[in-house]
């Protein structure tokens, strides 16, 4: 006699192996490929530092951004005071606004914060938004399908949808890309920082900029100002560092950006739970199918 198991047993074994393979497959499919996000911003990352005390509000940064990224003009509210346009949009990625804080009115520059713990990258289903190895959050518009999740999860309200057709949903996400094409082709740094005539916006290695920011904050504090760094640890560390003269809330910035945690809970807890549910349903059905096929003889069913 040979050592091969009886045919009946062989079927059992094959089915068992099949079921196990299916279960394993489902759990593998369920594991969202870990985004290549470093948990801590590296000091070697490129970054921008903004110093509102140096800023004179000339808007050269805003213009340079428009010009380099070929962004069209935006018709603006004629009653608007200094702020024009009023806010970031799909065609305005960099803007100077007037803020009233405890030290009175002063300018503040808004653009993408290039978070380490970026909610937009987390929720993007196409990987159009991704962490560039240089440190910034890059955007590949070719890959974007216009779903708009990034616009809804960003704690800073930075990405905006350029909607071509609301009905069909045809759209593309748009945001400050750190002038990714300038960095990738070695032309230089982000045009806003390159153009700034007073050194309010500077770019460089994040570690160096943090040192500069600390020294600057100490200097401002010595003058009696309530100065602080924003972005050292927020959302895992921002690559757009700012010096604030007051609470982050006075600038419309969250002290604790919570949405990255929400985005993670959605895609790393609820979706895997869903995969477990799909897996259980499929395994249950397959198990029942195989069991029933053997147990219920149609000839005996009345």
């Amino acid at each position: 006699m040979n050592n091969r198991p009886s045919p009946k047993l062989a079927i059992h074994r094959r089915e068992f192996l099949g079921l196990s393979a299916l279960g394993l497959g489902i759990s593998l499919v369920g594991a969202r490929a870990a985004a290549a996000a470093p948990s801590v911003a590296s000091p070697d990352n490129v970054a921008i530092l903004y110093d509102p005390v140096k800023c004179v509000g000339c808007k050269a940064c805003q213009m340079a951004c428009k010009r380099w990224n070929k962004l069209p003009n935006e018709s603006t509210d004629p009653l608007g005071i200094y702020e024009s346009p009023r806010d970031l949009s799909a065609i305005t990625w960099n803007i100077i606004k007037l803020r009233r804080t405890e030290v009175g009115w002063h300018f503040f520059n808004y653009q993408c914060m290039h978070c380490t713990d970026a909610a937009c990258v987390e929720v993007c289903p196409t990987r159009a938004l991704f962490h560039d190895p240089l440190g910034f959050v890059a955007l590949d518009r070719q890959k974007c399908n216009g779903c708009g999740y990034c616009t809804q999860f960003c704690p800073y309200g930075v990405p905006h949808l350029q909607v071509a057709n609301l009905l069909t949903g045809e759209a593309k996400s748009a945001k400050c890309t750190f002038c990714q094409d300038r960095l990738w082709s070695g032309i230089g740094g982000p045009s806003c920082a390159e153009v700034c005539p007073v050194g309010a916006l500077v770019w460089g290695k994040r570690g160096d900029l943090l040192d500069r920011a600390r020294a600057r904050v100490a200097e401002l504090q010595a003058q009696g100002l309530n100065a602080r760094i924003y972005g050292e640890n927020e959302a895992g560390g921002l690559r757009r560092l700012s010096i604030l003269l007051g609470e982050p809330e006075e600038y419309g910035l969250p002290s604790v950006p919570k949405t990255p945690a929400f985005a993670r809970a959605w895609q790393r807890i609820i979706q895997p739970l869903g995969n477990v549910a799909f897996g259980a349903a499929l395994l249950g059905i397959l198990g029942t199918f195989l069991f029933v096929r053997r147990k219920i003889r149609m000839e005996e069913v009345k």
């Binding site: 499919v29 289903p125 196409t126 990987r127 070719q142 399908n145 216009g146 009905l167 069909t168």
Partner: peptide, 25 residues
């Protein structure tokens, strides 16, 4: 599910993604 399952990501990108979103609508 094309937006839901990471392994279906290629189908969600660019023109294909726009098309599946249109079908969904």
């Amino acid at each position: 599910m094309i937006l839901y399952f990471p392994f279906l990501e290629p189908l969600a990108q660019g023109e294909a993604g726009l098309f599946i979103r249109l079908v969904h609508r």
